[in-house]
Design a protein around this nucleic acid. Sequence first.
DNA 1: AATCTTTCCTGCCGGC
DNA 2: TGCCGGCAGGAAAGAT
Length: 271
Amino acid sequence: MPELPEVETTRRGLLPHVVGHTVSDVVVRNPNLRWPVPGDLRRRLRGEKVLAVRRRGKYLLFDFPKGHLLIHLGMSGRLSLIADDAPPRRHDHFDMLFGAHRALRLTDPRRFGAVLWLPDPAEEHALLNGLGLEPLERGFTGKALHERAKGRSVAVKQFLMNSRIVTGVGNIYANEALFAAGIHPMRSAGRISAARWDKLAQSVRATLNRAIEAGGTTLRDFSGVDGQLGHFQLQTAVYGREGKPCPRCGATIRAIRQGQRSTFFCPRCQK
DNA sequence: AATCTTTCCTGCCGGC
DNA sequence: TGCCGGCAGGAAAGAT
């Protein structure tokens, strides 16, 4: 499930256990993720200290003195803190050990996730250098969105989910933010007023912050690093609620397809 | 059997 | 004609 709130929940859980700690070993059980896990990771990481763990969109960046470990959770990835002798299960592809019998383990059944080594400066890597606005940082404003949307015919929901425009907003939160802003998901991005872009920027921020407070969304297999489940799925207004009443006006929530993804909206509240 | 949380890539199109 | 950006669709693999 991981969208921005799930990745941020993971990052926050990780910080106290990882930052300032030194990697004692690395185990790669299955290097066949979205891209091959580099064969020299063990050599690069052993004995190196984690200086910081950052997030860029849905990417996690572990800063080391000589480079950065990038981890993406894909569709089904999860990081957990475990005892270093915990027996691996079927989809446990990668461990980073920290001594004191602690390890960080990547579990990812569908293997759309990634573990890569990025030389300095990480931001120049092809996966990061084209990314759009960080929705929880200062530059994320209605004005910035409005400018980028000029002349574009794409549906606003797909525009929001385009990582070159905004990074971190996936299907669940795009649906929820558009509901909160009262904007129809099929509306052309180029035909939204400045005032409504302001409202949408604020709705995206508020939706993501509420989801982070809830520990993310657990639809199936997401959990934080200590195994705790997210509970934002209990407070969605439209996502997964086809046929149910809109919490605001009582009209029936509808579901449609956009770009091979499910879109949920209230036909009365969203114009 | 169809669906799902991600996103890179390819191919097509229109504009200049 | 060629190049570019925008856009839609397909692909990866597993569980339900």
